[in-house]
Amino acid sequence: MLKLIAKRLVSLPFVVISITFITFIVGYMAPGDPILAMLGGRTDPAAYERLKHSYGLDQPWQDQYLDYLSGLLRGDLGLSFRFQGRPVADIIASGISVSTALGIAALAGSLVIGIPVGLWAGVHPNSKRDRVSMILMLMLYSIPSFVLIGLLRWINYQFYLRGLPSLPVAGWGRPEHWIMPVIVLASASMGYIARLTRVSMLEVQKQDYIRTAHAKGLYNRRVLWTHALRNAALPILTVIGPSIAFVVTGAFVVENLFSIPGIGFLSVQAIQQRDYPVIQSTTVILALSVLVMNLITDMLYMAVDPRVRVEG
């Protein structure tokens, strides 16, 4: 197990360096000029040259990349192009905390609702409640977030028109700003988790040890909670990691449509503004978070399943 983790940890820096290189090169070769974006498309050759120089963009690309990389190693992410003189680390730090909080809330929501619904359906397969809840979950899983957002906004607007309490449809800073984005963000992974839990429960219930437990004369509930659930939890655990990644990527759409200043929102804005230092940093951080999540999932998996531990 330690060997596996060590292997992963050793490969991590290389993966990260490759990612920085790819984002840098793609950004460097992409059409569009950050200085022109800054100048609002006006032609003032003197100002153009001056700004280009002050951001080091007149240097050859290798130098620019090495500068960036050495800064990264020192924990210096550089200065934003768009927000002149503002450290990228500053911009991103606030974005990360917002996205993380939102992601955790969404994941918690999807687990708290998704697992019980899955269990509830899985215990009584092919019953009416199984079918209805699973169709509902499938819908939640497959409906694109921008459609769901439109739907929620429409419902909310109908509330508003009738003078009923309504939620802010976008923005950040007040507690009620959380409700809609969390619902949207949680719904997709909720549907996935519920369906997975159900399948997993069905699978486990067919196992011999469950039959044995029943044969021992244990109560149904006891069999479910102590024998079935623990084993059924295994596949769920493995998808939590990827679904965190899913929550992060899903956040791109949700954060942008709700104007939430998270990292997905910052990335999209930075891309539009050709704010390379911010683009590079957000990409690296997102990639890093997915890598770390996968690592944590593997470790969790090993902790729960002794077989993996032995093989590892």
Partner: peptide, 18 residues
């Protein structure tokens, strides 16, 4: 002054009195 990159979002906010 609130920042709304997306005009549609701003319009929705206006519609609900925000």
């Amino acid at each position: 002054l609130s920042f709304n990159p997306d005009s549609e979002t701003a319009y929705q906010l206006y519609r609900t009195g925000e």
